[in-house]
Computed example of a mutant assay.
Amino acid sequence: MSNIKCIGILTSGGDAPGMNAAIRAVTRSAIYNGIEVKGIMRGYRGLIYDEIETFKSNSVSNIIQQGGTILRTARSEEFRTPEGRKIAYEALVREGIDALVVIGGDGSLTGARILAQEFNYPIVGLPGTIDNDLFGTDSTIGYDTALNTIMQAVDKIRDTASSHERLFFIEVMGRECGFLALNGAIASGAEAAIIPEMSELKDQLADLISNGFRKSKNSSLVLVTEGNITGGAMAMAERVKKEYPQYDVRVSILGHVQRGGSPTANDRILASRMGAAAIDALLDDQRNVMIGIQNDKIVYVPFSKAIKKNKPVQEDLLRTLKILSI
Rank of each mutant, 00 (worst) to 15 (best):
N120H: 14
D144T: 14
L208T: 07
I209S: 01
E165K: 11
S108D: 07
K242R: 10
I229D: 00
M198Q: 14
Y244N: 11
I150T: 13
A112D: 02
S163T: 15
V172Q: 04
S163C: 14
L167Q: 03
N132Y: 09
H164M: 10
I157G: 06
D155M: 10
S139H: 12
Q117E: 15
I229P: 02
G227Q: 07
G107R: 05
E171P: 12
K215L: 10
A146Q: 06
A206C: 04
R239T: 11
G189P: 08
R239I: 10
G227W: 03
T140H: 07
G174V: 13
K242N: 14
E165A: 12
L201I: 13
I130T: 08
N228E: 15
S139M: 12
E226L: 09
I150C: 08
R239C: 11
A235P: 00
N148P: 01
L180K: 01
D133L: 02
R158N: 05
R158E: 14
A181D: 01
S199N: 10
F213E: 00
D131W: 05
R239W: 02
V172F: 07
N228D: 11
I130W: 02
E191K: 00
G174L: 11
I229K: 15
M173T: 09
I157E: 00
S162M: 08
T160F: 06
M236F: 08
R166C: 04
G174P: 12
S199L: 06
G125V: 13
V102G: 09
L221A: 01
Y121R: 01
Q117P: 00
L134R: 01
D203M: 10
L147E: 05
S216K: 04
N120Y: 08
L180E: 03
K202L: 12
D155P: 10
E165Y: 06
G212R: 01
I157R: 02
D207Y: 11
A192H: 14
S108M: 06
T149M: 10
A185W: 01
R166A: 07
I123Y: 02
S108G: 05
G184N: 04
I194Q: 03
F168D: 00
N183H: 12
D144H: 13
A193L: 08
T129M: 10
E118A: 13
G104W: 07
Y143F: 15
A233F: 07
V240K: 03
G111T: 05
D131T: 12
E118K: 07
L182K: 00
L223C: 11
T160I: 12
M173F: 07
A206L: 11
L221V: 14
G212I: 11
V240P: 13
C177M: 04
F213Y: 04
V224K: 04
Q152M: 13
T145S: 14
N218M: 02
L182Q: 01
F135N: 09
E191N: 15
P127E: 04
T110W: 01
M173N: 06
A112P: 08
I130V: 14
G136Y: 03
F168P: 01
N211Q: 14
A161C: 05
I130D: 05
N148R: 15
S108N: 09
Y121L: 07
T140Y: 03
Q152Y: 12
T140C: 15
D133N: 11
I123Q: 01
G174N: 09
